[in-house]
Amino acid sequence: MSTNEKKIILKPSHKSLLWWYLLAVLLIPVFGIGIYLLYRFYTTHQSISYIITDHRITLKDSSVTENIDLASIVETGVFRGLNEKITGTGNVVIKTKARTATLIGQEEPGQLAELIRRAAEAERRRIEEKPEKKEKAASQNPGTLDKRDYLTGLWQQGLLSDEDFKKEMKHFQ
């Protein structure tokens, strides 16, 4: 990643777990199960992050990291269940030819999906417009440097006279 590359880090909104938090609070009197559930929901949610750069999206959780190149994205969408509609959050679904990834619990998921779709289109255009790198034509024939090194070695060892060395080196200029 280059130093001037833009980077956005997103985390799931805690609003998306509203019903799970309420359930955990209700279960606190039952042998402390609710406290354990609150801890698990919070730590799991904190371990999830999404890093969006100019060229890729990185999905991270506590055990897995996935990279999706923007140019490979073919479709974006939004999934909003009843909980998400109530809390104003949603899941952004990203589809490539090979897989589908979901950015869970995002606020303003419609806008985020549209931004990712536009960024993917821009990345594909950038790649298509990128000029092909042409190989530099060799300024000398292949093997010329090897021959020069060989002659220089003979001259340094005294096996070739100064006159013969200069005469042979004129062929390489």
Rank of each mutant, 00 (worst) to 15 (best):
Q106A: 03
K134V: 10
R126I: 07
R125N: 12
I57W: 06
M169A: 03
L38C: 09
T44E: 04
G34T: 02
I33W: 14
K85W: 04
G143S: 06
L17I: 04
A98Q: 14
S13Y: 07
V25M: 13
Y39F: 14
A98D: 12
G88W: 07
I57A: 03
T53M: 07
L59H: 05
V25A: 12
T100E: 08
Q173K: 13
G110C: 01
L18A: 11
F31I: 13
Q157P: 08
L10R: 01
I52Y: 11
L26T: 04
S139Q: 12
R126M: 01
W20Q: 12
E132I: 15
P12T: 04
L18H: 08
E128A: 09
I28F: 01
Y21Q: 05
S62P: 01
A122Y: 03
D162V: 04
F165W: 09
D54Q: 15
T102K: 13
D54A: 14
K97F: 03
R80F: 02
D69H: 12
G105A: 09
T102W: 07
M169P: 04
T100G: 02
E123R: 15
L18P: 01
R148C: 09
A101N: 10
E114K: 05
L26C: 14
Q140P: 00
P12Y: 08
D69A: 13
N83P: 06
A137R: 12
P12L: 03
R118I: 05
E66A: 13
R124W: 03
F41I: 11
K11A: 06
L159C: 02
L70M: 11
I127D: 11
E135R: 07
L26R: 03
L23F: 08
I28V: 15
E114Q: 10
T65P: 04
I68H: 00
K97E: 07
I94M: 01
Q173R: 15
G32C: 10
E132W: 11
T76V: 03
N91M: 05
L103T: 00
E121A: 13
L10D: 01
V78A: 05
S139F: 09
L26A: 13
E108P: 04
H55L: 03
E84L: 00
L27P: 01
E135L: 10
H14L: 11
G153F: 06
S161V: 08
Q140T: 12
S16W: 05
I68P: 08
T152P: 02
K95E: 11
L59Q: 03
F79I: 12
R80E: 14
G105H: 01
S63I: 09
T76N: 03
L160S: 01
Q157E: 15
T44K: 15
T43F: 13
L82R: 10
I51M: 14
I116E: 00
Q106N: 05
A98I: 10
W20I: 00
I116A: 00
T3V: 09
E135T: 09
D164A: 13
R124A: 05
K15C: 00
T43L: 05
E168H: 09
P142Q: 06
R40E: 06
D61F: 04
T96P: 07
H171F: 10
S49L: 12
W20M: 05
K60Q: 15
T152H: 06
E168Q: 15
T89F: 01
L145A: 12
A24W: 02
Y150S: 10
E168F: 06
R80H: 11
A71G: 07
V30K: 01
F165A: 03
R80G: 14
